[in-house]
Structure formats: structure tokens, C-alpha cells
Simulated scan of single mutants.
Amino acid sequence: MPEPAGDLRIERVPITHPDAQLLVEAVQEEYVVRYGGRDDSPIDPRDFEDPLGRFFVGYLDGVPVATGAWRRSPVHALGAETTAEVKRMYVVPAAQRRGIARRMLAHLETTAAAEGVHALVLETGIKQPEAIELYLSSGYEPVPGFGYHRDSALSRCFARRILG
């Protein structure tokens, strides 16, 4: 079993940062393996800049191993009017099963709450059972579909209140 990721450092970077782009491409390659194609949902890099959102890269020993981001969302879930959507959660295979995704998710929750977000929403796919397990075990609950993949049989949506 891999060692815990005690020395994980999470930095805010633009989605256009080379380390972010490297990992975003890696997750796209993972989607090709699991779903047969890239995620074609629209992403505007400005969504991850102030005041709309944040993008983060996690580093182990200076090596980029994880991403996570949030962007403000019009979706109302769990009675919350102010929500943000979790995007681009990913951990490279060599660093998986070390608690990195859970730590990144907690970082997203903390930074979004600090900006007045009351709930996080997210969409993932049924061919990512480890992601679904992470979200369920972190207190997220199923919510009706939303966004670009809302009508896809492969899509599952979740939400969690993080403030109030």
C-alpha cells in the first residue's frame, strides 16, 4: 500500500498553468479509457479566476500529482442559493490511494466556504466508482442531474452543504 501523502502541498494556480494543463490532459486521457472519449463539456478558464472560482494543483515532493477546482454555479441544491461546482478532481495513478483526493476535496470545501459558498455540487460518471465512493463517504448526497451531462445515463450528480 502506498505511503500516506503527508507532504502534500496544494497551490492555487491558473487553469492555464503548465502543471494544471498537464494534469487536465491526463484526466482527459482517463476519460477516453473509461468512456471512449474526452469530456466535451464547456470550460471557460475565466470561471476559475476571482471572483468566480479557484483552480488548485497538489504537489508531492515538488511533482504535480493532483488537481481540483471550483466555479460558481447557478444550480440550487439542498436549499442553498449560493453554490459552486467542483471540477477537474484528479489524482495521477502513482499517487492514488494515499488520501490525496480527500484532502483536495476538503481544500475545495474550505476555500469555497471562505468565499461565501453554501453548498458544493458536482457531476461524475458511473464508470468512476472510486469518485462516487469518495463523494458519498465525504457527505455528498445524490441530487437531480444538472449541467452539460444532465440527461446522460452515465452521469451522477451530488451536493453537500458546506456553510449554514
Score class of each variant (00 low, 15 high):
Asp61Lys: 14
Ile162His: 11
Glu141Cys: 07
Gly116Ala: 07
Pro74Cys: 11
Arg161Val: 02
Ile10Thr: 02
Trp70Asp: 00
Gly36Arg: 06
Gly79Tyr: 03
Asp61Arg: 15
Asp44Trp: 10
Gly99Ala: 09
Ala153Phe: 11
Tyr90Ala: 00
Met89Leu: 12
Gln128Ser: 09
His149Asp: 11
Val143Lys: 03
Trp70Gln: 04
Arg156Gln: 13
Gly6Met: 10
Thr67Ile: 04
Met89Ser: 05
Thr82Val: 15
Asp40Gly: 14
Asp50Glu: 15
Pro144Val: 04
Pro18Thr: 05
Ile132Lys: 13
Leu23Ser: 05
Val117Gly: 03
Arg46Met: 08
Ala112Tyr: 03
Val13Gly: 04
Glu30Trp: 10
Phe146Arg: 03
Ser155His: 10
Glu25Thr: 07
Phe56Pro: 02
Asp19Lys: 01
Leu136Lys: 14
Ser137Lys: 15
Ile126Leu: 13
Arg88Gln: 02
Glu49Thr: 13
Gly62Met: 00
Leu122Asn: 07
Asp61Met: 04
Gly147His: 10
Arg97Phe: 08
Tyr148Val: 00
Val86Ser: 09
Val13Arg: 14
Ala119Gln: 04
Glu141Val: 15
Glu81Val: 12
Thr16Tyr: 03
Asp19Val: 00
Tyr35Thr: 05
Arg9Asn: 02
Glu81Thr: 10
Arg9Ser: 04
Lys87Pro: 01
His107Val: 01
Asp50Ile: 07
